[in-house]
Design a protein around this nucleic acid. Sequence first.
DNA 1: CACTTTTTTGCGGGGCACGCAAGTTTTTCG
DNA 2: CGAAAAACTTGCGTGCCCCGCAAAAAAGTG
Lengths: 222, 222
Amino acid sequence: MPPDEPPKLTLRERKKREARRALAQAALRLSMDRGLENVRVEDIAAEVGVSPRTFNNYFSSKEQAVCSMVVDRHEGMREALLARPEGEPLWESVKQAVIEQYSREGEPDRAYVARIRELMGQLMLRGEFLNAHAAVERVLAETIAKRAGGADHLLCRLMASTVESAVRVAFVNWFMTEGEPFLPTLERLLDELAAGMPSLTGGTAPRPGPNTTTTSLGEPLC
Amino acid sequence: MPPDEPPKLTLRERKKREARRALAQAALRLSMDRGLENVRVEDIAAEVGVSPRTFNNYFSSKEQAVCSMVVDRHEGMREALLARPEGEPLWESVKQAVIEQYSREGEPDRAYVARIRELMGQLMLRGEFLNAHAAVERVLAETIAKRAGGADHLLCRLMASTVESAVRVAFVNWFMTEGEPFLPTLERLLDELAAGMPSLTGGTAPRPGPNTTTTSLGEPLC
DNA sequence: CACTTTTTTGCGGGGCACGCAAGTTTTTCG
DNA sequence: CGAAAAACTTGCGTGCCCCGCAAAAAAGTG
């Protein structure tokens, strides 16, 4: 068998990536177990066998570490989108690229649903999570622009932003409902997006209907 | 003239709101002047004439204080949307409600563009900013659901989320370009949304075109 | 004016993020 | 190879932040 990945990247680079990955994973694992508020930076560092100070050389907060898997996805996102066949309509390309990206990880682990729900309850974490999505959004916008051959820059940003919206909504739905699978939901939402959400716009009749609870602000669910 | 707002709310309530408002405003003002990193909680408290500890009774971080104006907008948002005429198509209602909301404040102050741009460079702040938008998004989704008479819950969330996307994209465009006015951009983006972004989808031809710079990640611009 | 409820404040603790200046490892190159 | 250069890690020290707690002050009540 071939000895291993022949180190194309300098040893240093490999070590760095590995350290980063390990830290991120440790941060996530510990947070799932005990809840983010019971995880000190010290713990994460210890888990990986590295000094606390080093943790901060890689991430500037534990929240950032936990969310780094989200942001790392932009890499594959760009490639997937650029790899779509030439003539394909833009929406279809984007839809397939995004779905492919989230298929590769398989349906998120059902066992952890409750934990994830608790995790996302943390306000600081949500901020970082949204930041991560914003990062993905930027490269997505750029890639769309490239793919669309110099289309209106603003519209590309809008499209990228709404696509990320769909992802987030599908994700929140996934971990809030216990039941519904992620990918089909995502696919449906992307289709709706592409069509301007006719299912909503269509059923215009504002029947009063039975009152739903007016859950006001504060910081309830995600 | 009538003596004043006849205190409908107990004196206590008024003081609380006033304190909160004052703190938020001070936080924003100071951040604009010196940049958020040079503003300690102590400074904000001092500006309002209150103990630092009290600041944290109102906000759990300075970032939150700075962004509180965003989240306070959900109040007016709900009212505006529910006040739209009955038969009006949903998209039109939402569009008008949102635009109305942002008209009431007038075009954001042109003089501060550069400052705002710097402000938004702060990563922590962006997280909180996005959190604030997420809060608005929640009540918007709920209001849309009510207005649409029990339509698909998920789609309502999607619509709310994409609308907020449009707002953010328009806003970022505003403070990144120096030039273009906010409201017309917003209006255009909302129209595009309602139509599934045909301007993009239409021009499918993927001409290679001259390469644009592949600005990769890190944490470049907003 | 007593009495209750709510808010403010000081204090103290636990933690986090980061600059800096050694140490240590990897890379480069003569 | 072996030494200088470059890059990464680590410990230490600093400043700041967030929050729990309990006492003091303020606002509401009769």
